[in-house]
């Protein structure tokens, strides 16, 4: 038993080490930029991490920021596991949010059922928006990077158009979700939708590592030739990865609406859903494309998104810097052996 744990930890050490190293690279370059721009990085990071993790309210707000990121990370991660670059989470989040806002705001249903139905519709819409890219890949070999980028932008304009038709008395957002379609507020802005989100993360983990389908999907991604030889349909694996990704991204959109305290609606300019899909790519990479790793990565970056508010208020560092840090982490993680390369240089 102990041996298994030790072995498990040892297996973990390398990927976690790479992520930690990339995060350190990101934070260091962030610090460098602060120094160049005349700020004190120690004061800034102190304010940031204290604001994000230094109190219960900080933690709750951090988890709020982390919630959608856990999901969009899954979209990218499951794609990667199947050998696919699904960067379409952004658009799927928009459309998922539209679905949830529609059912949540316009269709009266009994309490309990309502929130479930609205969530389900958000997820369904996410899948519907993910499917065309999957089918284009399977039938026409259209590269998913190209198709998902295009679908992201189509989704942007389409969602704005739809918000215009789903608006209630206020033209700047959809009609707010009815009380029966809202998740309960736990504290700060955090709502109970986070339990649904974590449940989905665990389900995806089970799907990937504890079922035959998951095994086939991962084999199709890591070694398509071997998969074909074993009679596994690579196309099926691709399709499943897109569906799971769409479910996750759709839930992210739904969570921003039905768990989107205090407006409970989708903003017309996509203000409360924008960029989560793109940030999810970075979260997935930090979490080593693992649904559970993604949870921790999302909490880390949710902390950055939350703590930047304190960083700007207390240390005077403009909060946009945290996007730069994420971008640098992403690029560091794009290099497969960065840690090894650096080690070799300094030996």
């Amino acid at each position: 038993m102990i041996n298994r744990i030790v072995k498990g930890l040892r297996d973990l050490a390398r990927p976690v080490g790479q992520s930690v190293f990339a995060v350190l690279v990101g934070l260091s370059i962030g610090a460098l930029i602060m120094i160049i721009s005349g700020n004190n990085p120690i004061a800034a990071y102190y304010a940031l991490f204290k604001g994000a993790f230094g109190s219960l309210s900080g933690w709750l707000q951090t988890l709020t920021f982390a919630t959608p990121l856990m999901l969009t990370a899954i979209t990218f991660a499951v794609g990667m596991k199947a050998g696919i670059f699904n960067i379409g989470a952004e658009g799927q989040v928009y459309i998922g949010a539209v679905g949830a806002a529609w059912v949540g705001g316009w269709i009266a249903l009994p309490a309990g059922l309502h929130v479930a139905a609205a969530t389900a519709f958000g997820m369904l819409f996410g899948v519907l928006w993910a499917l065309p890219a999957a089918l284009l890949k399977i039938w026409r070999g259209v590269h998913e990077v190209i198709s998902t980028i295009m679908f992201n932008w189509i989704a942007f304009y389409f969602a704005i158009f739809l918000v215009g038709h789903l608006a209630g008395e206020r033209a700047e957002l959809t009609k707010p979700a009815m009380t029966s379609a809202r998740y309960a507020v736990l504290g700060e802005s955090l709502t109970s939708v986070i339990f649904v989100v974590i449940a989905l993360c665990i389900l995806v983990y089970i799907l990937l590592w504890r079922t035959r389908t998951g095994y086939e999907l991962r084999l199709a991604g890591s070694n398509p030739d071997a998969a074909r030889y074993a009679g596994i349909s690579v196309r099926r694996a691709i399709l499943i990865s897109f569906i799971v990704g769409g479910l996750a991204a759709g839930l992210a959109g739904a969570a921003q609406v039905l768990g989107g305290h205090p407006s409970w609606a989708l903003f017309k300019g996509m203000g409360n859903v924008a960029n989560y899909g793109f940030m999810g790519i970075g979260i997935a990479l930090i979490g080593r494309n693992h649904p559970i790793g993604g949870i921790f990565a999302a909490i880390f970056y949710g902390g950055l998104l939350n703590g930047r508010i304190a960083m700007q208020a207390e240390a005077g560092v403009y909060s946009e810097l945290v996007y730069v840090i994420l971008g640098i982490i992403i690029i560091s993680l794009a290099i497969p052996d960065l840690l090894a390369i650096v080690k070799k240089r300094f030996k």
């Binding site: 604001g51 707000q61 700060e188 305290h261 205090p262 903003f267 924008a274 508010i309 909060s319 946009e320």
Partner: peptide, 12 residues
């Protein structure tokens, strides 16, 4: 920078 910032900003 996003509408998710309104609450934490006001609370801060």
């Amino acid at each position: 920078t996003t509408s998710a910032d309104y609450l934490p900003n006001l609370r801060a």
